[in-house]
Simulated scan of single mutants.
Amino acid sequence: MKRLRSIVEIVSITVLILFWQFVPVPTYLLPKPSQILFELLRNRDILLKHTIVTLYESLAGYSLAIVLGIVVASLMFLIRSVAKALLPIIVFTQTIPITVVAPIIVIWFGFGITTKIGIVAFLCFFPIVISTYEGFRTVDKEKLEFLKAHGAKWFQKLRYLYLPHTIPYTIAGMKIAVTYSLTAAVIAEWMGAQAGLGIYIIRALNSFRVDRVFTAVFIIIVFTLILFYTLHTLQRKLFPWAMRIEGGV
């Protein structure tokens, strides 16, 4: 069944690419896959330089969001007053579009790479902190009472109940956040940068080179998928029981 599904996916993607290649649409509106591939190969050195910058910003910001998200979620669970104070603020920050937040952060902290990392962390933080907090909150009360009745210490509750239950929630939030990381880095670069895929896209748009825009978008999609499935593979290797709880992908 799994093999059949893979075959169907490959055939569907192949048919879509062939349709895209031969559909009679002007290339200045929708570049063909062969044209995108040609631009990718011809400008590979320049694209590699920009891609490395964007990847660094996105991975650094994503890592920061993981650390902050888990720490804040833990504090919210342990201290009820912290949750009451922070939760509305965290939710409120997500109602502001990133295209509004990014310029403000740039004005406050300048155009350096640290600002780009901060913007990525800002966008990736929400799904991680909320998912982790929800994991802590939904621990089975009967199991907790069972451990208490048997005199379990705090670290035993953490090891045998809280962590096994919460890790799938945290990873689910991390999977959502990782799909935001590259996009956030690109938006941050639009606000001002020397290098990065965001700058490459702006220059391509100013030159009316739609094919180059699509090339950069293709790179963003590919690396987003790589990051997502790398996280998925690590989850399967390190936390196989979490995969069973989630139901797998």
Rank of each mutant, 00 (worst) to 15 (best):
M1V: 07
M1E: 07
K2P: 03
R3H: 11
S6Q: 13
I7Y: 15
V8I: 15
S12W: 08
S12Q: 04
T14S: 12
L16M: 10
W20I: 03
F22G: 03
F22A: 11
F22E: 00
P24T: 01
V25Q: 05
T27D: 05
S34R: 12
F38M: 12
E39K: 09
L40R: 00
L41V: 00
L41F: 05
R42F: 04
N43L: 09
K49V: 14
T51W: 09
T51Y: 05
T51G: 11
S58D: 03
A60W: 00
G61F: 03
G61V: 10
Y62G: 00
S63F: 13
L64T: 08
A65G: 07
I66G: 06
I66T: 08
L68K: 06
I70V: 15
V71K: 02
S74V: 02
S74M: 10
M76N: 05
M76Q: 04
F77G: 13
F77P: 02
I79T: 05
V82G: 00
A85G: 05
L86H: 02
L87K: 06
P88D: 00
V91F: 09
V91A: 08
T93N: 12
Q94M: 14
T95P: 07
T95R: 02
T99D: 07
T99V: 14
V100P: 07
V101Q: 12
A102W: 07
P103E: 12
P103Y: 12
W108H: 12
W108Q: 08
G112T: 14
I113E: 02
I119F: 08
A121F: 08
F122H: 04
F126M: 14
P127C: 05
I128G: 01
I130N: 04
I130Y: 09
S131H: 12
G135I: 00
F136M: 02
V139P: 01
D140H: 09
D140Q: 08
K141L: 14
E142K: 14
E142Q: 13
K143H: 10
K143G: 08
L144W: 09
F146R: 04
L147R: 04
K148R: 15
K148A: 10
A149V: 11
A149K: 01
H150I: 04
G151S: 01
K153S: 15
Q156D: 15
K157T: 11
R159N: 14
L161T: 06
L163Q: 04
H165E: 07
P168A: 07
I171D: 02
G173D: 07
M174L: 03
A177F: 03
Y180R: 02
L182H: 08
T183L: 15
A184Q: 04
A188N: 09
Y200N: 00
I201K: 07
I202H: 06
R203P: 02
N206L: 00
V210C: 01
D211C: 09
V213S: 09
F214E: 01
V217C: 08
F218D: 04
I219T: 10
I219L: 15
I220Y: 02
I221D: 03
L225R: 12
L225H: 10
I226L: 15
F228N: 07
Y229C: 03
L231I: 14
L231P: 10
Q235K: 06
K237M: 14
K237C: 11
L238T: 13
P240K: 00
W241C: 07
W241K: 11
A242Y: 06
R244T: 12
R244Q: 13
E246K: 08
E246H: 07
E246I: 05
G248C: 04
V249A: 14
